[in-house]
Nucleic acid binder design. Structure first.
Lengths: 122, 122
DNA sequence: AACATATTTGGCCATATTGCCAAATAACCA
DNA sequence: TGGTTATTTGGCAATATGGCCAAATATGTT
């Protein structure tokens, strides 16, 4: 690994770190459906205004969202459009994993594998 | 956000946290090209054997890789195949961001935008 | 059995991340 | 101007993460 490779890896890591928190991931998923203002998140995640604001700053610094002030409100929207697809892929994967774990423990309770659709991972 | 939504979000977060470290991201990118044994990573990342081993454990617990012992070596391989695409999308995005930042500071040094290709994000 | 190699585990300390509170800004309204 | 709402910032304590060392395991070799 040379200097440049390391630098690129670290830049990507900034993005991934930004995603790697439940509240921030929730925010990103919400923003996938369109812009929202800060107060909407405060209600949804039941955290302090300052906490949400700091999470949004992390997302902004990582280049995942951009903000725009309109009146007294600040609206955020997604900048990196490949995120929703990826997140849904992860979602599929973890759901599959959960099913496999359940079926190992209690085979009779497991949900049968869908037949004509296949998940996007593996 | 209800209980189930929260649970799913947290499961996804485990995956993202696992990716969000330079050494682990490097490992995942290497594994995208095929299985490798632990010692190969130790050489490449210049960290203690125990450190690498722990990083691999994080990846395994998150369901991103699986391992197989053959002889005295343990080989790891990727389990979640949507990862490489996503990581390369992030790579494109951070590269674009870097170019934009440079062009804001020193326009004459900036790389011109490619004309017929467009990056996968935005 | 004794030894070498490959890897994992336990422990410990340094550093980074979170979340809350209080205070500071900013825009709008009376 | 003074007050209200929306948001950000600074500071701090609690918790989580990362990395190294030493010790434990596991496999293969002599």
């Amino acid at each position: 690994m040379n200097q440049q490779q390391r630098h690129l890896i670290e830049a990507k890591t900034v993005v991934l770190k930004a995603l790697a928190h439940p509240t921030r991931l929730y925010i990103i998923e919400e923003l996938a459906q369109g812009e929202k203002c800060v107060c909407e998140f405060v209600d949804a995640v039941k955290a302090d205004f300052s906490t949400v604001s700091k999470h949004l700053l992390v997302l902004k610094n990582a280049g995942l969202v951009e903000d725009e002030k309109r009146g007294q409100q600040v609206f955020y929207r997604l900048r990196m459009r490949c995120l929703p697809d990826f997140i849904s892929c992860i979602g599929t994967a973890v759901a599959d994993d959960a099913r496999h774990k359940v079926s190992q423990l209690t085979p009779e309770l497991s949900v049968p594998k869908p037949k004509n659709k296949r998940s996007k991972h593996t």
